[in-house]
Nucleic acid binder design. Structure first.
Length: 866
RNA sequence: GCCAGUGUGGUGAAAUUGGUAGACACGUCGGAUUCAAAAUCCGAUGCUAGCGAUAGCGUGGCGGUUCGAGUCCGCCCACUGGUACCA
């Protein structure tokens, strides 16, 4: 064996072996327990970034670990290939989105292989391939036939200069990112899938996902937002254009007597009707249109409103209440109207204060001493009704029921269950996506493209002008015939969340040409046993995929109810930023690789300079790796410099997977140093001669301790990989084991070498999932004929774990005053006696009365004295 | 705004069920080796005071529960993710 560790040589050997033996290509095997491990597939943006490296290292570690446990492991990879960035890049580089995308895929695939990820490339797919999106189109037409798809008007961001629809991301401070024009809201017809039909099930089956992070389930529950409330009808005092009234929904009918006005959306039919002969209102409505459609922007916008002059009739008191048009009420959600109870709702309170509207308290605290001062702020807690006539004195539930019942009797309201979740709008006015498989008919209306005419192909050889989608600009593309009749192709494409909603299932039947899925294969592999991806997908992607899975189930394609059995959400990858402010106020950002740091004597950075010029730059803090701050660290550079194993080891070691990960070159060197030390240890061990067969009956204390460490480490790492999914502590445990080997191992005889051999082999096996290349070569070097990728996970020798002594902490009033070594399982009584006799303990109990002694066997003794 | 997280030494972090705060690693300092340096090896390293034994303080802030709180509860601050057309 070579004395020095050369990562590039080692990695070449291992990667060639994996490739030549096709060892990650798997097929269904009913005799073996299956394990489907999946990473969220990447958008082919050009280069792999550290977030990808982290994601795929995690799934690779889990896959290799599960494989060593003897399971049939599927670990596929593919490309989320449709999307907005390809269009932007195509315009910028004067190329076509397809060409750009395919060349990115080629490059990134090579990068993935250089990192040694064990993917089954036979199942590779790219969502922009007609063989993939054909089945998505087919599935959509099936949903259409089942009535789960419909078309309606919906609001988009409209750039009036570029005459194009903008994504929320493309709206910056209310203006179009390219044109700078103030963005307008525009209503256009769009396709929707009825996710709300599945709201109840999407909510309730979250309870069947014990291995999902609680925070993700909570976010999804809140997003679905099931609530019980009352739908209330308000009549208009004077009908307008035949409109006699409108509905509002509230979860707080108990506050109904506190309604002092109602707010309606700018697009509400009543507002539009009134605006016809009200110039001021008409102007306000026009103004409301100049607003981004994103919820975050809207909530940040100033609350504005205007009194319409029209009143509605309060359904119980019959008193007139003012109708306001407000910019924060949206036509797309609910009925486009809300009742306002300023005394008991913060937003209504703020609005009422601003416009001097009445604030009427109708709820008082259940406990009289609770803070409630309506002149200062809204009281939003539930309480006891006041100023509510016949309902006075009722609590929330009683009032809810009584008021609902009364409204019901008057024919003015009913109890309903409401969901915050809205139907899934899947239409996009973009080019680089799956064409929506619908024909628009000349007489109006539409019909699904029949199966024989699928796929509706997206032309790939196009020129992007930066404004209009090439398939919208091309009148010929639109032309089609159906049964000899001229029809037109829909020119909108699908939301790219469509493709990412079912790719995990297609991997099981990747090359199937005759159907979307092969149920036999799909049902063998599904559900995914472990899904890993960024927390940013906690709601949208994961909810749409869950929904799509249920749609596929109801189509008879899959059997299980949920697609992802266990979910791990990884944190982002961060790096230090460096910048210089220019005289004109602009900022230049410098990549960490171009900066030299100067540190004070404690190691705290005090000064940063550009390595090339020596110019001083400012330290801008650690943030998410991004193009805008130029702090991306290229994985390829790191792999070239230290090797894939080091990069993988560092990514796993530097932080637990769910936390943010800070890239740090010094830390990477530490990881590299550890691998070199491992290599050197194996080299020294082999040079010392052949070990004898391990005989555990005649070991010295030091050797027993080393064996205990070996088996404690196996137990710890197994728990960390398999149960806790905390890879950083697993790596730390192996580091500890190797430290002990180097400190205590004895190479003088065959018997002692056997103890060292056991420890070293354990270390290699435990490390194999994280650093598979070096483990592959070292395992071979130790004389094994099978490859480490197929080796069996080490088992624990319970006898080696037995401890003779434990350290007990002795506290006085909760403060540590002594530590003692005692035999394992010393009795409570004995521990108490020993503790009280301790000299240091007596110093602190002297002159005090011992009130209580708490003894936790094998842990601590706490003496309470005063 | 709303929903969900996060906050521990100079730094990344550990502490799995309420029981020794800081494992492991980086950095820094000191030493060995070297003509010298790199690499490697050994040792020290939470902060403050003290030669030292040791003592006090210490897990974003304020308060609470408990014999005991990084961990549980309440309020607050800062940062991050999502907010339905970025993926």
């Amino acid at each position: 064996m070579e004395e020095q560790y050369h990562p590039s040589t080692v990695e070449k050997i291992a990667q060639e072996y994996w490739k030549d033996s096709h060892c990650f290509e798997v097929t269904e095997d009913p005799d073996k327990e299956k394990f489907y491990c999946l990473a969220m597939f990447p958008y082919p943006s050009g280069k792999l970034h550290m977030g990808h490296v982290r994601n795929y290292t995690i799934t690779d570690v889990i896959s290799r670990y599960q494989r060593m446990l003897g399971k049939n492991v599927l670990h596929p990879m593919g490309w989320d290939a449709f999307g907005l960035p390809a269009e932007n890049a195509a315009i910028q580089n004067n190329t076509a989105p397809a060409k750009w995308t395919y060349s990115n895929i080629d490059y990134m695939k090579q990068q993935l292989n250089s990192l040694g990820f064990g993917f089954d490339w036979k199942r590779e797919l790219a969502t922009c391939q007609p063989s993939y999106y054909k089945w998505e189109q087919w599935f959509f037409t099936r949903l259409y036939e089942k009535g789960l798809v419909y078309k309606k008007m919906a609001t988009v961001n409209w750039d009036p200069i570029d005459q194009t629809v903008l994504a929320n991301e493309q709206v910056v401070d209310g203006k179009g990112w390219r044109s700078g024009a103030v963005v307008e809201r525009k209503e256009i017809p769009q396709w929707f899938i009825k996710i709300t039909d599945y709201a109840e099930e999407l909510l309730s089956s979250l309870d069947e996902l014990p291995n999902w992070p609680e925070q993700v389930k909570t976010m999804q529950r809140n997003w679905i937002g099931k609530s019980k409330g009352v739908e209330i009808n308000f009549d208009l005092s004077n009908p307008i254009e035949g409109i006699k009234g409108f509905d509002v929904y509230t979860t707080r009918p108990d506050t109904l007597m506190g309604v002092t006005y109602v707010s309606i959306a700018a697009e509400h039919p009543i507002a539009l009707a009134l605006a016809k002969d009200n110039a001021e209102l008409s102007e306000f409505i026009k103004d409301c249109k100049k607003q981004s459609v994103s919820e975050a922007d809207m909530s940040a916008a100033e609350k504005r409103g205007i009194d319409t002059g029209l009143t509605a009739v309060h359904p119980l008191s019959n008193e007139p209440v003012a109708i306001w048009v407000a910019n924060y009420v949206l036509m797309d959600y609910g009925s486009g109207a809300v009742m306002a109870v300023p005394a008991h709702d913060e937003r209504d309170y703020e609005f009422a204060q601003k416009f001097n509207l009445d604030i009427k308290q109708v709820i008082k605290p259940t406990k009289p001493d609770d803070d409630c001062d309506i002149s200062q702020e809204a009281y939003t807690e539930k309480g006891i009704l006041v100023n509510s006539g016949e309902f006075n004195g009722l609590d929330f539930q009683q009032a809810f029921d009584a008021i609902a019942q009364k409204l019901n009797a008057l024919g003015k309201g009913k109890v309903t269950t409401n969901f915050r979740l809205r139907d899934w709008g899947v239409s996009r006015q973009r080019y680089w996506g799956t064409p929506i498989p619908m024909f628009n008919l000349p007489e109006g209306g539409e019909i699904a493209v029949p199966f024989e005419k699928l796929p509706v192909l997206l032309p790939e050889d196009v020129e992007m002008d930066g404004v209009q989608s090439p398939i919208k600009a091309d009148a010929d593309w639109r032309k089609a015939t159906l049964d000899g009749k001229a029809v037109e192709h829909e020119t909108d494409t699908f939301d790219t969340f469509m493709e990412s909603s079912w790719y995990y299932a297609r991997y099981t039947s990747a090359d199937l040409e005759s159907a979307m899925l092969d149920p036999n294969k799909a049902n063998y592999w599904l559900p995914v046993d472990q899904y890993v991806g960024g927390i940013e997908h906690a709601i949208l992607h994961l909810l749409y995929a869950r929904f799509f899975h249920k749609l596929m189930r109801d189509e008879g394609l899959v059997e299980c109810d949920e697609p992802f059995k266990s979910l791990l959400c990884q944190g982002m990858v961060l790096a230090e930023t460096y910048f210089r402010k220019n005289a004109d106020g602009s900022t230049d950002w410098f990549n960490p690789s171009d900066v030299t740091l100067e540190k004070d004597d404690k190691g705290k950075p005090i000064k940063a300079t550009l390595t090339a010029t020596g110019e001083i730059v400012e330290i801008g803090g650690t943030t998410k790796m991004s193009k805008s701050k130029n702090n991306g660290v290229d994985p390829q550079t790191a792999v070239g410099q230290y090797g894939a194993d080091t990069v993988r080891l560092f990514t796993m070691f530097a932080a637990p997977p769910t936390q943010t990960l800070e890239w740090n070159d010094a830390g990477v060197e530490g990881a590299s140093r550890f691998l070199r030390r491992l290599w050197k240890t194996v080299h020294g061990h082999l040079a010392a001669g052949e070990p004898a067969t391990l005989n555990t009956s005649n070991l010295t204390q030091v050797q027993q301790d080393l064996r205990r460490k070996t088996h404690e480490t196996i137990a710890k790492v197994s728990d960390d990989y398999g149960v806790r999914q905390q890879f950083n502590t697993a790596v730390a445990a192996v580091m500890e084991l190797l430290n002990d080997v180097n400190k205590y191992a004895d190479r003088s005889t065959g018997e002692t070498l056997a103890v060292e051999r056991e420890a070293i082999e354990a270390a290699i096996l435990l490390l194999a999932p994280v650093a598979p290349h070096i483990s592959h070569v070292l395992w071979e070097t130790l004389g094994h004929t099978d490859s480490v990728v197929n080796a069996q996970w080490p088992s624990i020798d319970q006898a080696a774990l037995v401890k003779s002594n434990v350290t007990i902490v002795i506290q006085v009033n909760g403060k540590v005053r002594a530590k003692i070594d005692v035999a394992n399982n010393t009795s409570k009584e004995e521990l108490e006696t020993i503790a009280k006799q301790d000299e240091n303990v007596q110093k602190f109990t002297d002159g005090k009365t011992i009130r209580k002694v708490i003894v936790i066997p094998n842990k601590l003794v706490n003496i309470v004295a005063n």
